[in-house]
Amino acid sequence: MHQAGFWTTLHGESNQFTYLLAWDSMAEREERWSTFLTTPEWIAIYTETEKDSPLVQHISNTLLAPTAFSSLT
């Protein structure tokens, strides 16, 4: 996974955390994300942080594609 950035909200919904991951392809995303979610270390950390109550109230997943004029293309 390539972490492209992390943000907190200055104005708007409180306690919102946003992060952006970059992938070379949808196939890479699907393979690496499914591997990550089944990693024993991740499962143990998730289980521990969620044992008393959910840490996250809402998750939104958006897939983006750069425009032709983006500096990423």
Rank of each mutant, 00 (worst) to 15 (best):
S25N: 05
L37W: 04
S14G: 11
F69G: 00
T49C: 05
T73K: 06
T8S: 12
G12S: 07
H2A: 03
P54Y: 01
S71D: 03
T47H: 03
I59L: 12
P66K: 04
L55C: 01
A27E: 15
P54A: 10
Y46H: 14
T18M: 15
L72H: 02
L20R: 12
L21F: 10
I59Q: 09
E13A: 08
G12W: 08
L37Q: 13
S14L: 09
R32M: 15
E50C: 02
H11K: 11
T38Y: 01
P66V: 04
T35A: 15
A44D: 14
P66M: 02
F69L: 11
W33K: 02
H58G: 00
I43H: 03
R32H: 14
P66T: 04
T8I: 12
A27G: 13
D52N: 09
A65R: 08
T73G: 02
F69Y: 02
I43K: 15
T38R: 10
T73W: 01
N15I: 00
A4K: 07
A22Q: 15
E28S: 10
V56S: 01
T39I: 01
S34V: 01
T35V: 09
E31G: 05
T47Q: 12
S14H: 13
S53M: 04
P40V: 05
E50N: 10
G12P: 11
Q16N: 05
I45K: 12
S25A: 11
A4F: 10
E50A: 04
G5I: 10
D24P: 05
H58S: 08
G5V: 09
H2W: 05
T39P: 00
A22E: 13
A4C: 08
V56H: 02
A44I: 05
M26D: 07
F36P: 00
I43T: 11
I59W: 09
R32K: 15
L37M: 11
F6P: 00
N61M: 07
W7F: 14
W23C: 08
A22L: 08
Q16L: 13
A68V: 12
S70P: 04
W7M: 10
Y46N: 13
Q16F: 02
E48T: 06
S71H: 07
W7N: 06
V56C: 05
L55R: 13
W33I: 12
S25L: 10
S60W: 08
S53Q: 14
D52I: 01
L10A: 14
L64T: 04
E48G: 06
E50M: 11
A22M: 08
L10C: 09
L63Q: 09
S25F: 12
N15P: 00
A4R: 13
R32I: 12
I45C: 08
Q3F: 08
A65Q: 14
A27N: 09
L64A: 09
H11G: 01
A68I: 06
S25C: 03
P66E: 04
A65S: 12
V56I: 15
G5N: 05
W33G: 04
L64K: 01
G12D: 06
T38A: 07
R29N: 09
L10V: 14
P66G: 01
L63P: 00
R32Q: 15
S25Y: 10
A22V: 05
T73D: 02
F6M: 14
M26H: 05
T62M: 01
L10Q: 11
S60A: 06
L72K: 02
F69E: 06
G5D: 04
H11S: 11
Q16Y: 00
H58M: 06
P40I: 03
L20Q: 11
E30I: 11
N15W: 07
T73V: 11
E50P: 00
A27T: 14
